[in-house]
């Protein structure tokens, strides 16, 4: 069962992800965050079980959010992860409705971002995620 963190300020978007992933039956615990700051706080200061599992944590990251945007959140996440000497056991995917080619370009430039998923979440989006996840685990 794949543990999931969804970081998105849109309640309906989080709901969609929850429902889609639940249907596939392959995903386990799903934690929702309304902003990048909340996610960072929880990941580094909280102790949810999802972060300590052996399976990599799937992180679905929105780009346009109030406060820290998706990219800024990931930058901060990588920096803090490196400083904490914790092993990186995550798979980060951008999950956005952004049409901006600059955003897609930027996502490619981030080594830790493994995919760019366009909203809304559909059935084949789940297959896409599973494909990436399995590749990531095999590598």
């Amino acid at each position: 069962m794949i543990p999931v963190a969804i970081v998105d300020d849109g309640e309906a978007d989080r709901y969609l992800v929850k429902r889609r992933l639940a249907r596939s039956g392959k995903f386990g615990e799903l934690i929702e965050f309304v902003s990048g700051d909340r996610f960072l706080e929880e990941f580094f200061d909280g102790t949810p079980s999802a972060y300590s599992r052996s399976e990599p944590l799937l992180i679905l990251m929105d780009i346009n959010m109030p406060g820290r945007d998706g990219f800024e959140t990931i930058e901060e996440f990588s920096a803090r992860l490196a400083a904490s000497h914790r092993p990186d056991n995550t798979l980060i995917l951008m999950y956005t409705s952004s049409l901006n080619s600059k955003d897609q370009q930027r996502a490619r430039e981030f080594g830790v971002i493994k995919g760019y998923l366009e909203k809304p979440m559909r059935n084949n989006s789940v297959d896409f995620i599973l494909g990436l996840y399995n590749d990531h685990c095999a590598a």
């Binding site: 969609l16 409705s97 049409l99 909203k119 809304p120």
Partner: peptide, 21 residues
């Protein structure tokens, strides 16, 4: 135009996703 199209498209994407569901 960019902000507006993005910010107005985002809820439409969500609506499409919800209606499919």
């Amino acid at each position: 135009a960019y902000s507006a199209s993005h910010d107005l498209k985002a809820p439409l994407s969500t609506i499409i996703g919800l209606l499919e569901l």
